[in-house]
C-alpha cells in the first residue's frame, strides 16, 4: 500500500488530499477532500493528470515576432517538456487569426495547437 499526496486546485482552499493505492496504482481510498469536486480532482490527478499547454511560436512577416499558442484541450502532464521542445521548432507566416490551427494532432496527442491572438501581416 502506498500513499500519494495531492493539493486540490479547484478552489483557493487548497485541500491536502491523500490517495491510498496498491502497487498497480489501483486506488483504495481518497481522504482529505472537503467537497465532491475535490474527490473528483484527486481521482483524475492521480490516474491521468492533464494540463493545457501554452507557449509561443515564431512568426514571419507579422506585426509581432511571436504568436501566443495553446492546446485547445488538455494534454497529459508528463508531456509538457516535449510540447515545449516541439513548439520551439514551429515557425509560421502572418497573418494569423485567433483560433487558427497551428499544428494538428500536436505531439501525437490528438489535440490541436491553436493561435491565441490575431497577428496582422506587414
Amino acid at each position: 500500500m502506498a500513499k500519494t499526496n495531492i493539493i486540490c486546485i479547484r478552489c483557493p482552499k487548497g485541500c491536502h488530499i491523500t490517495v491510498t493505492h496498491d502497487d498497480d496504482r489501483n486506488i483504495q481510498s481518497i481522504e482529505g477532500f472537503s467537497c465532491p469536486r475535490g474527490e473528483e480532482y484527486a481521482k483524475t490527478e492521480f490516474t491521468n493528470p492533464v494540463r493545457v499547454f501554452t507557449s509561443t511560436v515564431r512568426v514571419k512577416g507579422g506585426d509581432l515576432d511571436l504568436l501566443p499558442v495553446k492546446t485547445n484541450g488538455s494534454i497529459p502532464k508528463p508531456m509538457m517538456m516535449d510540447a515545449a521542445r516541439e513548439s520551439c521548432r514551429i515557425e509560421i507566416e502572418a497573418p494569423v487569426k485567433i483560433g487558427d490551427v497551428i499544428q494538428s494532432n500536436f505531439c501525437g496527442t490528438g489535440i490541436d495547437l491553436v493561435a491565441a491572438r490575431n497577428i496582422k501581416a506587414i
Partner: peptide
Amino acid sequence: CIHNGFGLQYFKEELTGPEYAT
C-alpha cells in the same frame, strides 16, 4: 500573459491573456 486561467468567472471558460484581451 500567455498562460491560461483567465475568464473563469466572467466568460465561464478558461482563456489565455491574449484571448481574453481580444
